[in-house]
Design a binder for these strands. Structure first.
Lengths: 225, 225
DNA sequence: TCAAAAGTGTTCGTGCTACACCCATGC
DNA sequence: GCATGGGTGTAGCACGAACACTTTTGA
C-alpha cells in the first residue's frame, strides 16, 4: 500500500527474532545470547537481527539463524509479529518472530564477537530477558505444545533414528505430563508416521531399544494426542 | 535490534491488510475494495493501509478496519506477516495480515473517495486480486476453518441471539460439509458454551426456533468438532 | 544374577455415528 | 389443512484409558 512517498518517520525497521528449541539432558531448552550493547548490556535475548532491504523476512530469519546459532536446514516457522511502538528503546522496530526446532545432535555453539555469551537455557528456568522477549518465548512454547498435538512436527526434534521411549520422553517433557507406555506406542504406531528400521541401539546396560524412523519428514496436520 | 543507524534503503514500510469475513445470504463472504490507483486500477483487494510511526501495528489494523469498512469492536486476529521483497510494485512493503469476523447484522458498506467500489464477495467466487492478496485470503480461510473446530470463535459471526439451526448452518457453510442435526445439537449443548434464552423467533411460516445465546463471548480453546 | 529400561494385550467405559418421526407456526 | 423448518432418542461401534508382567542387555 506504499502508493505515495512517506515521510521518514513513518518508516520502520523490520527485524526478526527466533526462538530456537532443542532437547538436551532430558530438558526442553532455548538458545539465548548475552548482549553487549546498552541499554541491554549483559541481558539475555533471543537471537535476531535486522531485515535487509533486498531480502525477504523469511530469508533474514534464516540468515540470522545461521550466523548466530550456526544451524541451517532446520524447522523454521513464523510465530507472530510484534508491533508495539515502544518495544525497542532504540526506535521503531517491528519484529517478526519465528521459532526453530533443532535435533539434539546438531548443537554447536559459537560465541561471536558481537555477543558476550551464547547458551542453552531450560525453558522453566529462564533469566530476565531483553525487549519483549519473555512474551515471545512464552508464545513460542505455547505454539510448540499445540503443534505437537496436532502435527507430526516432533520429527524435527529427533535424530534420524530414535527409540519409542525417546519419542515419548519428548512429548512428556514438552507437554509436561506422563503418558502410558502401551497406549502411547499403540497410538503412535497406528498413525503410520514412523517405521521400524530393524536396528537396535546397543551399548546401554539394558535391553536395547528398537530404532524407528519417520516415513515422511515434512509437516502434516494429524491429530496425535 | 536497531542498535545502529541504518541507511534508508534498509527501512521498510509496514502495512496491514485485513480479510473481513461475514455470513450473508447463506454464504461466507469477504469484503473487497476496488482500487483506483495504478498499477492495480480496477483490481480488487483486501482493505489495508500503512502503519503510522506512532501507532502499533494492531492499532493500525483497527484504524483501517474502521475507516474502510466502518466496523469496530469486531473479532480481529493477526494472521501472518508477508515479507517477500517484491510483493508490492511500489517498493518494500511488509504486510502484517489480519482477519476479522463480523456478525451478519452489522454490514454497512460505504464507498469512499479513495476507492472505486466496496463489495462482499462469496469466498468461492472471488475476482482476481491485487498484490499477494489471493494468498492472504486463502490463508485466512484456512485459519478460520481450523479455529471453528477448536475454539468458540463462531460467536463473532452470530448475532446476540440465534437458533441452533443458524449455528449449524455456519459450520456447514464454512467447513463445507453437512452435520447430523441431532448429533450436532447434542455435541454443542454438551459443551456448555450457549444457553437457551427461553425466547422464540416468531414470524416465519414454520415452527418458531428457540433462541440461544453465548454464555461467554471471549475466545476459548475447546474441541468442538 | 541383578539392575534397568524395553516390549507387549485386554477390559471397560465414553463418546461419536447413524438413523426417522412428530411438532408448531403462518398462510 | 398444508407446507416448512424445528425439535427429539436410541443402539452399535470405535477409540481412548487403565492396568502388570516378561524380556534383554551390560556389568
Amino acid at each position: 500500500m506504499n502508493n505515495q512517498i512517506q515521510p521518514a518517520y513513518e518508516f520502520a525497521v523490520i527485524a526478526t527474532d527466533t526462538v530456537i528449541f532443542t532437547i538436551q539432558n532430558n530438558e526442553l531448552r532455548v538458545l539465548l545470547i548475552k548482549m553487549k550493547k546498552k541499554p541491554f548490556a549483559d541481558r539475555w535475548a533471543v537471537p535476531g537481527g535486522l531485515v535487509l532491504g533486498d531480502e525477504s523476512v523469511d530469508v533474514a530469519a534464516k540468515r540470522h539463524l545461521m550466523n548466530k546459532a550456526g544451524v541451517k536446514n532446520v524447522y523454521l516457522e513464523q510465530l507472530y509479529t510484534f508491533g508495539e511502538v515502544d518495544r525497542d528503546p532504540f526506535g521503531r522496530v517491528v519484529s517478526v518472530a519465528y521459532f526453530a526446532l533443532i535435533p539434539s545432535a546438531n548443537v554447536s555453539l559459537k560465541t561471536t564477537a558481537e555477543y558476550a555469551d551464547v547458551r542453552w537455557f531450560q525453558v522453566n528456568d529462564l533469566p530476565k530477558l531483553a525487549y519483549d522477549h519473555k512474551k515471545i518465548v512464552k508464545l513460542a512454547i505455547e505454539r510448540l505444545r499445540a503443534k505437537l498435538t496436532y502435527t507430526n512436527i516432533v520429527f524435527s526434534l529427533l535424530p534420524d533414528e530414535f527409540s519409542l521411549s525417546e519419542l515419548q520422553k519428548i512429548y512428556e517433557l514438552i507437554l509436561g505430563k506422563k503418558f502410558d507406555k502401551r497406549n502411547f506406542r499403540k497410538k503412535i504406531l497406528s498413525l503410520n508416521l514412523i517405521k521400524n528400521t530393524g536396528k537396535q541401539q546397543l551399548g546401554s546396560p539394558n535391553r536395547p531399544p528398537e530404532l524407528y524412523t519417520f516415513i515422511k519428514k515434512q509437516l502434516e496436520n494429524i491429530q496425535i494426542l
